[in-house]
Amino acid sequence: MDNLQVELQYFLELFLGGLTKGSIYALIALGYTMVYGIIELINFAHGEIYMIGAFTALIIATVLNIMGVNHAALVLLLSAGGAVVYASAYGYTVEKIAYSPLRNAPRLSPLISAIGMSIFLQNYVLLAQTSNFLPFPKLIPEFEFLEPISHIMGSSEFTIICTTSVIMVLLTILIKFTKIGKAMRATAQDKSMALLLGINVNHVISFTFIIGSALAAVGGVLIGSQMGQINFYIGFIAGIKAFTAAVLGGIGSIPGAVLGGLVLGWTESFGTGYISSDYEDVFAFTLLVLILIFKPSGILGRNTSQKV
């Protein structure tokens, strides 16, 4: 009986660990999937936006600390808010510089441009900041009501899961029930028809990049405060995993990105917990290969005919 309880607790811990990790993947994967849904571009610079978000929060929190602002909620709000605004500005600018001029170019050109942008941003932060790992301030305070279960779920995990859930709901409302959401869906379906019906497609695309970047920045701030350190390279690995999550769930599908992120998080967590962490990445990518073999468009991806 005791044994069963230990096993159950272990399972629950791995489940929650996977959920936390998956939520972060999902936040970043949303950016990939929304951009793909609208302009069929894989925005490889997206992981870098996540990294820039984390760096901005770190800088703001440090500056606030020097200025003597110690109110935890205020610091969290200001640095997360600053990170979201700043990363969105980056997302917007990247789109204007690197993708917008290539709107009508062959599909390979914006892809190469995206890879270039990713390398550029990474090296830019490397030169402007440092190549060392920087300690990330503890932005999320310890919640007292979590004290009894803190060995299973800490306050940062709790915050990550709650924030992600709220963001998912808000995003769904935005896309389903607002005017801009309708415009986004229309643009995704048929860009030229949307244009003919008076939708400013360029605005819609910019808006999509801004939303995606904001989500990535939130992910960056959350994971930064959970792990306690960041460097210029964190965007690369997180980006690759989130991209995998987006493809797993069906690229272009918003619920798919969330599901893909969670499935990936759980696979890694349970794979490590029950088999071996040596093969963590092997499990993740084996799953991807298997799903793509049996369902080439991803778990929730629809098999739409190719647009001409």
Partner: peptide, 20 residues
């Protein structure tokens, strides 16, 4: 006796395994 992926987003699973 296990290796972890350097630079991974999170190490909670391996930490739980150590505890388990």
């Amino acid at each position: 006796f296990e290796g972890v992926t350097p630079g991974a987003v999170d190490y909670s699973a391996i930490v739980q395994k150590v505890k388990y």
